[in-house]
């Protein structure tokens, strides 16, 4: 897909989550300790814009399409 390393890490985590409501931003932060919240948010925004992920029960939970 031409993802950056950050986008790829975020996408893979979202894709691997099997919860009905998807993965929370808090869980992403815990799993991606070395990544800043700014970078996580940027990656999420890119993935949303490209239609790879979507928000679920609220704006802090995401699943992959």
């Amino acid at each position: 897909y031409g993802f950056t390393a950050n986008q790829n890490q975020v996408f893979n985590l979202i894709k691997s989550c099997s919860l009905a409501e998807g993965i929370s931003v808090q869980n992403l932060r815990t799993a991606l300790k070395y990544m800043s919240l700014y970078d996580i948010r940027n990656s999420l925004q890119f993935l949303i814009n490209e239609g790879h992920i979507f928000s679920t029960v609220d704006e802090n939970h995401f699943k992959a399409t």
């Binding site: 009905a20 949303i48 239609g51 992920i53 979507f54 679920t56 029960v57 699943k63 399409t65």
Partner: peptide, 27 residues
């Protein structure tokens, strides 16, 4: 941790919107 029917409906709606956006980007 079960979702309400309304939450399920919203998730499906958002999923379809994202798929449409994906298709748009690929077009």
């Amino acid at each position: 941790n079960t979702l309400t029917p309304e939450q399920k409906r919203k998730i499906e709606e958002n999923r379809l919107k994202a798929l449409a956006r994906r298709a748009e980007r690929l077009a």
